[in-house]
Amino acid sequence: MAIDPENTLIWAALVVYGGTAGLVAIRSETGPWVGRGLVLASLLLCAVIALRWGRLGHGPFINLYEILLSNLFSLGILYALARARQSRLRVADRVVLPVLLLLGAWLVSVPALDSHLPPTYETPWLWVHLLSGKLFLAAALIAAGLGGVLILRRLRLFPAEDVPEADVERLAWRWLGIGLVFHSTMLVAGAVWAQDAWGRYWAWDPLETSAFLTWLALALALHSRLAWRVAPAVAGLLFWGVFSLAFLTFFGVPFLSQAPHQGAI
């Protein structure tokens, strides 16, 4: 029986994610091995992307399998980098790792179909659009991870940590703000690309509408903190609301049609 190297590597990455998430759930502290697990899993996924890229001649940009694969890689590596830079983010490991594991489980349940790169994808704006989108999703995941900590602590389902609640909340708001930076960049890059490719910078197609709703939700969350005194658990729900909308935009809306932008290709 022939072994599919791409599938084998994905399963290896999932085993690493699962093992890391399991250890984080069992142990009371999260040591440097979590970061190493994240980096190892990301390297395995990077190898899958490289193999697929070499075989198809283009990056993982088109179908659901490719979008899940590339985002599982980018979320893992960006979270690892962020928590290496900001050690206080490790408090969110128990929330973020299960999300990555679920994303991985979804990935292996999706058929690994080959794809065709539309001619309008051969533009530098694709890279700006995709990279800023991945940075936004990673920032939203970090904010949601910290928000999850706030909610679980309120429900007394989360062990006491050495990071005070106020610090967790402040950090989450800042990551949501960083998310707004990259989401805005994603929208602008997408608009420039759409103008060059299809002769309009905005046409309210389902994905554009969903992305703009996510941007509005981000702005609403950030301004609700200025307008009212938002309790930590409510803030946690707001972060999850934004991440859920972002998740829907990335992995739901585009695949109701055959292509990320319905009818535009």
Partner: peptide, 13 residues
């Protein structure tokens, strides 16, 4: 966006 990046990223990272 450059202004927003200056505001958030400088202070966080």
């Amino acid at each position: 966006i450059a202004g927003l990046a200056w505001h958030y990223i400088r202070g966080t990272l």
